[in-house]
Structures are given as structure tokens and as C-alpha cells.
Amino acid sequence: MTQQGAALQTYNNELVKCIEELCSKRDELNGQIQQEEEEKSRLQHDIRVLTEKLSRVNESLAQRLAARSTFDRTIAETEAAYMKILESSQTLLSVLKKEAGNLSKATEPRSKGH
């Protein structure tokens, strides 16, 4: 019986050792799980912060794009109106020169030969 008791004691010691190793591995795994849960929480927070920032940037960008579009339209309309003014000025100058020429001819003394 002593031999069986010794064998039983050996098995018992090995079982306890295996259980302790399993508990140790579980504790190590628990620590890793806790670290990853904390990292997940930080990342989710960062995502929320970045999503809010992205939303604000998109809103600002949309407003700036609309303002640029208004600038582009105003510039195009102003340039078109300015070109019309230039054309009108050129036409007016041509008419004025022609009339001035006609007036000059009309006010010149006639030659005595006629």
C-alpha cells in the first residue's frame, strides 16, 4: 500500500502542479485580455474624436467650396461686364473720331477755286 500511496502522492503533486500552471497561464492571458480591452477602449475614443473632427472639417470645407464658387461666379460676371464696357468704349471712340473728322471737314475753309 505504501507504494500505491507514494504513486498517489506523485500523481497528486503533478495534478496540483498542472493546475497551478494552467492558472498561471490563465492569469497571463487575463492580463493580455485586459490590455487589449484598454487599447480597444482608447482606439474607440480616438475614433470618436477623429470622426467628430472629420465632420467639422467636412462642414468647413463645404462652406469654403461654396464661397469659392461664389467668388468664381462674381469674377466671371465682372470680367464679362468689363469686356462689354471695353467694347462699348472702343465703339464710342471710333464714332467720336469719325464725327470729329466730319466736323473738321465741315469747318475747313473752302478752296477759292470753286
Rank of each mutant, 00 (worst) to 15 (best):
R64T: 08
F71H: 03
V95F: 02
C23I: 14
T74R: 13
E77P: 00
G31H: 05
R26L: 08
Q34W: 00
L54C: 08
I47K: 05
L103A: 11
L43V: 09
E77T: 06
Y82N: 10
E77V: 04
T70A: 05
E52V: 10
A81H: 03
I47T: 04
N30D: 13
A81W: 00
L43K: 06
C23N: 15
T70R: 05
N58V: 02
S55F: 04
K84C: 01
I19W: 03
T91P: 00
E87H: 05
L65S: 07
E52P: 00
G31M: 07
D27P: 00
L8P: 00
S94L: 10
Q4R: 10
T10R: 15
E77F: 02
S60N: 09
A81E: 09
K84M: 04
E87D: 13
D46Q: 14
E21S: 10
S89A: 15
S88H: 06
E20R: 11
Q63C: 02
H114D: 14
E21L: 06
K17R: 15
V16D: 03
E87S: 09
I19V: 14
N102E: 13
N13K: 08
T78Q: 03
L103D: 09
R64G: 00
Q3V: 08
T10Y: 07
V57P: 01
G31V: 06
N12S: 15
T10G: 04
Q3R: 06
E39Y: 05
A62T: 12
A100D: 15
E39L: 15
T91L: 07
Q63K: 10
E39W: 05
Q34E: 12
K84P: 00
L29I: 05
E87A: 12
T91N: 09
S60W: 01
L50Y: 01
E108H: 08
L43W: 01
Q32C: 04
E59V: 02
T2G: 10
T78R: 12
E36C: 04
S111W: 12
H45T: 15
L50M: 09
K84G: 00
C23G: 07
Q3T: 12
N30K: 14
R48N: 11
I47Y: 05
S94G: 13
